[in-house]
Nucleic acid binder design. Sequence first.
DNA 1: TTGTACGCGTTATCAC
DNA 2: GTGATAACGCGTACAA
Lengths: 326, 326
Amino acid sequence: MSTIREVAKAAYVSVATVSRVMNEKGYVSEKSRKAVLQAIKQLDYRPNRVARSLFQKRSGLIGLIVPDITNPFFPQLARAVEDMAHQHGFQVILCNTDEQFQKEREYIKSLEAMHVDGLIITTNYSNNPNYEELEVPVVALDRVLQGAIPTVTSNGYEGGKKAASFLLASGATELAVISGPSKLPTIKKRRDGFEEVAGTHLVASIESPFHFQGALDAANYLFDHYHCNGIFAASDVIAAATVQVAAERGITIPDELQVIGYDGIELGQMISPPLTTIAQPIYQMGELAAKLLIQRIEGTPIAAVHHELTVEIIERETTKRKDEEA
Amino acid sequence: MSTIREVAKAAYVSVATVSRVMNEKGYVSEKSRKAVLQAIKQLDYRPNRVARSLFQKRSGLIGLIVPDITNPFFPQLARAVEDMAHQHGFQVILCNTDEQFQKEREYIKSLEAMHVDGLIITTNYSNNPNYEELEVPVVALDRVLQGAIPTVTSNGYEGGKKAASFLLASGATELAVISGPSKLPTIKKRRDGFEEVAGTHLVASIESPFHFQGALDAANYLFDHYHCNGIFAASDVIAAATVQVAAERGITIPDELQVIGYDGIELGQMISPPLTTIAQPIYQMGELAAKLLIQRIEGTPIAAVHHELTVEIIERETTKRKDEEA
DNA sequence: TTGTACGCGTTATCAC
DNA sequence: GTGATAACGCGTACAA
């Protein structure tokens, strides 16, 4: 890879002139412009972004911190962030924390040291590292952070309520919720909304980890100890596990049992029967978070508001159509 | 963030001494070492990695190029690469190309300009950009590249054969394969292996895109035009679509129809009935690719060999147990 | 054992 | 219009 100095030499001008041509700043005669352009093409010169970063204190890098990209909720989010970043000339560094505070801190230190221009954080802790004290702009995604940090989530409370109303309207009378870890505020809201509308129809409320295996256990536990005909799961993965356990036990869906998930990931369409779910606008959430972050990076003052996007029920085949209501 | 100069001042030594302490190189008296360490802690000094990169010509960055992180095969791969990279002090930059040659080239140019230390490429083209001519080490993952580039794939040919043998042994007599885009060599091998063993039992061989919607169409097409009782799908997503279409048409699995997928992604366990599949060691593939790349980066000479990992059949419920064989 | 000074590749600020 | 040159922060000869 050639340097600006080599280009300058080849074009018989100084490095300053080359720089001016590259950045279209300041005056430069048509003649030397041509010469420089020619040399650039010939040598396939591209400015060394490391050197540029050092001077400008801007790396063009964004850190994206997720618990685990393997959890099917995150790839879409990551994709949205990457797309938006790419559009604005940023690259994305991917970090998996496994929800470990220690790993998250390490990553953040490391990213700071390499002078990333901003951070998008999607992991969920109850305790918070002082993100406010970070020198780089931060946006929280699918997570509420205290302090002056912009946040993007979906309206889980509303989603929980919608799920309950829908089940009730479709003839379910005994409602249960399989929540995620309730120490996560975004998750707890889903359950709260559901329980509020479910009211006296609520027969069970249990928790499950996010991964499939754990959710299988949770579903089995639920079926062993309670009887219900309408279940709201706090994630589509948990819902998929519930559907599978029901199938194993010969419980027919949606006749004997209706199930609603939460997320709207593609998985929902892939299982049989396809899953009714409360869909978050995942891609838009990622896009918005990236957009907010980039605006902050570029200096636009952004209110540290909480953006709560609306969710929407996608009716598929784990619930009864309202007009077929029993 | 403080600089080495500030640390030097605080410790009443020169920057050289600080550097020596940081990198544990050269002699430094116990006394100044203490002082420096003290100052480092006090100022929370971490060397600016941009400046360090500029000097050392080593960025600690690895580029990971995938078609689409949203395709459920890639998150696991990405996770493995990131884990291994992290263990060795590298960070991973994620790039989605959508299989567009143009985007891939842009990304590579960009990554080169930011002086990434290496590249892992997982996209599949028939035409090849001259990766050999790149100045940075490259490793191909799930893809065969011509030239002196190390490659990691799974043994698709063997996998295809295993699928056919298994179906035959479980009583299937009319075999079909739903392949992926056959211009991808790694995919074509799966089909070739299958067809070889299927022999005269092969009744249909069609292609499908990788995404679920397209696979749904392909499966419908297959059922409309052919009759078969054993299907091998070139990916688990395609298999999931096949299972779903079969369910819609009232074809019982595995009694009337047996299905085997390829990949071994978690999705396979989540659908009903759980999918029998030819599992690639996805995580190990990512790990190996990253390991090879890092070795090359660190200067260990690595043979540009093709690593072909063995696949394994995971028997779940879309096939009949051999001992129940009809 | 320690400090000074230079180079890494770029951009911006001056003079000319 | 254009060309030296001083930063940016770090690591390392080389001199002390």
